[in-house]
Amino acid sequence: MKKYRCDICGYVYDPEVGDSAAGVDPGTDFDNLPEDWECPICGAGKEDFSEV
């Protein structure tokens, strides 16, 4: 599973960790994040992320 970095603030989404504050379980692939998921640091949308 690939990591993705937020182009705005630099936060890295690691699928092995997930995003517990947003209810995203560990093991969730970036592509399977809900479309309205936002960067937990800056609120950017999925479209503002690039593969690391």
Partner: peptide
């Protein structure tokens, strides 16, 4: 208005 990263979280 939340304005995250303009210019801090």
């Amino acid at each position: 208005l939340e304005t995250r990263m303009l210019h801090w979280p």
